[in-house]
């Protein structure tokens, strides 16, 4: 078994009478891509602040690569890169000045900083803007510099709190690509996101938090398998179909989204065969047909008590 890059043990945090994080224990393996999901106000950001040493827990402890964050905060933080949720970089400085400043915090020498900055600026698509003040940049460009600041010192552990929230497609893709590259190089990634599809495709394991408590920690596919009953068949036709055309004893529920029908069933094989048979009989052309397992979104909604 691989060693834990991040270990949070029995973490609890209260804000006055509000229990934000309730006795959470998390262990993220070295080199793992770990997703952290939860509805708004569930305690995601507070948990990430406890794990990164931004806030002290009321009780419990955090270790980064075996170093206790409370007793050795500087040593532990040297191993981390953090992109906080709403935080940004200094608008009065240029991208290069921001990166240089961050390099100094991580005690990188001048030459090492220069080399790394020369490497990162084009990678982040900022070559033409390297000497302009950041305050005039778009949100996507600021977020790219923010990523640069978090990975400049090649951290062993990278925490990202909603890094792609509200970004344009290009910036989002760039950030996802960078996360993938870092993970391939062995960086442990702890990603908080609202984008469940993103978590499902990127993360090796996900944790779901609700009302301050963990409700699941598992591989995405394993989580989906626990909700077998919500398999579905998605089908669309070249023209409208008559009412009741898709009703079938194997189908528990039908929903219509756009030009597609979603038929929920425990027996997708039988449903597909029946749909094809009926379409053939009616002379309908099937334009798309897909069997889907339960999505991580459905698992998430189920576990967090949504509808």
């Amino acid at each position: 078994m691989s060693s834990a890059a991040i270990r949070g043990d029995a973490l609890t945090k209260r804000f006055n009478s509000f229990l934000a994080v309730n006795d959470i224990s998390i262990a993220v393996n070295e080199g793992e891509f770990f997703g952290f999901l939860g509805p708004n106000g569930a305690g995601k950001t507070t948990t990430i602040r406890l794990l990164t040493g931004i806030l002290p827990p009321d009780s419990g402890s955090v270790e980064i690569a075996g170093i206790n964050l409370s007793s050795h905060p500087l040593m532990a933080k040297m191993l981390m890169g953090v992109i906080p949720e709403h935080s940004t970089i200094y608008g009065d400085l240029t991208p290069v000045q921001n990166l240089n400043l961050v390099g100094k915090f991580y005690r990188m020498g001048a030459r090492e900083r220069d080399e790394r900055i020369q490497e990162l600026i084009p990678r982040l698509g900022l070559s033409e803007h390297r000497d302009r003040q950041v305050r005039v940049f778009s949100k996507g460009m600021k977020q790219r510099i923010s990523i640069g600041c978090a990975i400049l010192h090649r951290p062993r552990v990278l925490f990202l709190d909603e890094p792609t929230e509200g970004l344009d497609v290009q910036s989002r893709r760039l950030i996802v690509d960078i996360m993938r590259e870092l993970q391939a190089e062995g960086t442990t990634i702890f990603l908080t996101t609202h984008n469940i599809e993103e978590a499902s495709t990127l993360c090796q394991r996900v944790a779901i938090i609700n009302r301050g408590s963990l409700v699941a920690v598992e591989r995405p596919e394993v989580l989906k398998q626990t909700f077998e009953t919500s398999k579905s068949v998605r089908v669309s036709f070249s023209r409208d179909v008559p009412a009741g055309f898709l009703e079938n004893e194997d189908v528990s529920r039908i929903t219509e989204t756009g030009d597609k029908f979603i038929l929920y069933t425990a027996n997708p094989d039988a449903v597909v065969k029946e749909v094809v048979r009926r379409a053939d009989r009616e002379g309908l052309t099937i334009t798309s047909l897909q069997i889907s397992g339960p999505s991580l979104e459905e698992v998430f909604v189920h576990l967090t008590g949504g509808n």
């Binding site: 935080s87 915090f105 991580y106």
Partner: peptide, 14 residues
Amino acid sequence: RDRTFERLLSYPVT
């Protein structure tokens, strides 16, 4: 106000 304080706390400083 500029949302840089939280990031500052995440650097190797106390």
